[in-house]
């Protein structure tokens, strides 16, 4: 007797999977694809840098200080991008430095995102008074100039790469809180959340199983964009002497060390600067593509 009802069974036809659709929209944006390739190269260098680099990043070739890049007079193929005042190979330092920037990005985004998502979820589900308290605290953090706040935090914690990362994560976190809270509030209105409540789902289940997976798209986009902010901020802190300490080949620290040689040897500041610029630009382009592909509100057509 069940057959009477199954006659209405309708065909489900093959539609492209989420991944293919994502790739279609991502590919539309040429800048994003270029960004993705550069980011892939960057990640590759971060993982395998020490094995690719022609020299040891901290080895000082005392005989060859401030050698210019190979195409300039006095340059040689031994040091493709020249050497710094202590005779360390620039190219090797840049390649190994990618690891620090990547590490900074990953750690900062993980800390900021996990903390921000958690606080945002709580704010979205909490009664109004708690929500107000959380959001006002976030507003206060956002009211400080971010770099200044990070500086203060590092000054309190003591200058090191780890502390710089913690400081940047704290500064970036309110963005995640706001974003998560906003999407939680809009998802909470939807019928499927009400259905889950009618079925008897508790708050924890509603927060983490029902609502959170549906809020992830904008958070992923924010993650990509704050990856670049983290690299930039870490470089800035390094430049100010508050981040990674010498002789770490961190790009910002390299800039700081080479500051006094700007006029005599342009390459010691230009190449780390270009490395930061290209990486940040590539990640931002990729983030834009991610947003186009993941955030249906901004999708064209």
């Amino acid at each position: 007797m069940d057959d009477a009802l199954s006659t209405e069974a309708e065909m489900v036809h093959a539609r492209p999977g989420r991944l293919r659709e994502f790739w279609f929209y991502f590919r539309e944006n040429r800048g994003a694809v270029i960004g993705l390739w550069i980011f892939a190269a960057f990640a590759f260098l971060a993982l395998f840098g020490p094995w690719i680099a022609p020299h040891d990043a901290t080895a000082q070739f005392r005989a060859d200080t401030l050698v210019p890049p190979f195409w300039q007079e006095g340059g040689s193929w031994k040091y493709i991008l020249g050497t710094d005042p202590l005779g360390r190979d620039m190219l090797s330092r840049l390649i190994v430095g990618a690891r620090y920037s990547f590490f900074v990005g990953v750690v900062v985004v993980s800390i900021a995102a996990s903390g921000g998502i958690l606080i945002g979820l709580i704010a979205g589900f909490a009664p109004q008074w708690l929500d107000s308290i959380i959001m006002r605290i976030m507003d206060i953090i956002l009211a400080f100039p971010s770099l200044l706040l990070a500086l203060v935090l590092v000054a309190i914690l003591g200058p090191s790469l780890t502390n710089a990362m913690i400081a940047i994560a704290i500064v970036l976190q309110p963005h995640y809180v706001r974003l998560t809270r906003a999407s939680v509030l809009s998802e909470k209105q939807k019928d499927y959340v009400t259905s889950a409540r009618v079925v008897g789902a508790g708050y924890l289940r509603l927060m983490f199983i029902t609502v959170l997976p549906n809020c992830l798209a904008p958070i992923i986009v924010q993650g990509a964009l704050s990856f670049s902010t983290a690299i930039l901020d870490a470089a800035a802190l390094g430049f100010l002497g508050m981040g990674a300490q010498p002789p770490t080949p961190e790009w910002g620290t390299m800039l700081a060390e080479a500051r006094e040689f700007i006029l005599r040897a342009w390459w010691v500041v230009t190449f780390p600067g270009i490395a930061i610029l290209v990486t940040v630009l590539a990640i931002n382009l990729m983030g834009d593509g991610l947003r186009d592909a993941l955030d249906p509100k901004l999708k064209r057509s």
């Binding site: 006659t7 209405e8 309708e10 065909m11 036809h13 093959a14 539609r15």
Partner: peptide
Amino acid sequence: TIPGVVPGQFD
């Protein structure tokens, strides 16, 4: 009733 659904892009 009318069985089935309006044909889509793939069917």
